[in-house]
């Protein structure tokens, strides 16, 4: 494998710096929220992680379509990379959401549409990885992965709506099943800046991770081919 391209090296350093800056902003620049106190600070990275997770799954969806059209192996590598990173960040989003919910809504878990949808997504993409593990032939694995990434992503909005209608008809006691109800707050200018910067930071982090993960996928692919050549 060739050495890391210069752009990637720079990007990695920039990402680390941005992450540090975002953390500093969250702790020292953003004001303390008046009702919820310190736990509200989790919110900035919580939303950013959810956004990054969605980005990852969206990348896998697009890569799935691209693979089915072009049959180029690189799209398969991009797809797995997207799913893997999406899973990691969606998990962060779910757990931090739960930690936030505990002091604010007085429960670890509510069947709120967003929370439930995020969890179901996590299950869909865990199934994606299990599906890939069960297939040995690389070409078939790529095709199955692409199909499942497409189907899985399409089911997400429908899942969300089904749970939302479900909840509007049967309101939950806590926060009316809506995250904006209890635990909502007006963002001050400084909060908004911190929030936006966190979003940008996590997007950059996503690009960096995706790039590294794709390079790794390509490397693994080359090794696989080399192995085949030696065995033949």
């Amino acid at each position: 494998m060739t050495a890391q391209p210069k752009t990637l090296k720079i990007l990695t350093v920039v990402t680390v710096l941005m992450l540090a800056a975002a953390s500093l902003m969250v702790f020292f620049y953003a004001p303390l929220e008046a009702v919820m106190g310190q736990v509200q600070k989790v919110f900035y990275f919580h939303v950013a992680a959810g956004w990054t997770g969605m980005l990852g799954f969206f990348v896998a969806f697009v890569a799935g379509i691209a693979y089915l059209i072009t049959h180029k192996h690189i799209w398969d590598i991009v797809g797995v990379a997207g799913v893997e990173i999406g899973l990691v960040f969606m998990l962060i989003c779910i757990i931090t959401g739960s930690i936030w919910a505990r002091p604010i809504w007085n429960t670890w878990w509510t069947w709120d549409p967003r929370l439930t949808t995020a969890t179901i997504m996590e299950l869909v993409y865990a199934a994606y990885l299990m599906l890939r593990q069960g297939v040995e032939d690389p070409d078939r694995r790529a095709r199955f992965g692409a199909v499942y990434a497409i189907i899985g992503f399409l089911s997400v909005p429908l899942t969300f709506f089904s749970i939302r209608i479900f909840r509007t008809i049967h309101p939950v006691v806590i926060g009316g099943g809506d995250a904006d109800a209890t635990g909502s707050f007006d963002m001050t200018a400084k909060m908004l800046q911190t929030f936006m910067f966190s979003l940008v930071t996590f997007s950059v982090l996503f690009v960096t991770l995706l790039w590294h993960r794709i390079r790794m996928g390509k490397f693994a692919d080359q090794l696989e081919q080399l192995k085949m050549k030696l065995l033949a």
Partner: peptide, 27 residues
Amino acid sequence: GPANTLTYMIAGFAVIFGIMLIYLVSL
């Protein structure tokens, strides 16, 4: 004043950076 939710905040950030760190190590 604001509720004292410091422990929850610490737990939250521990999770955020912990999971990211685990992923990095695995990579």
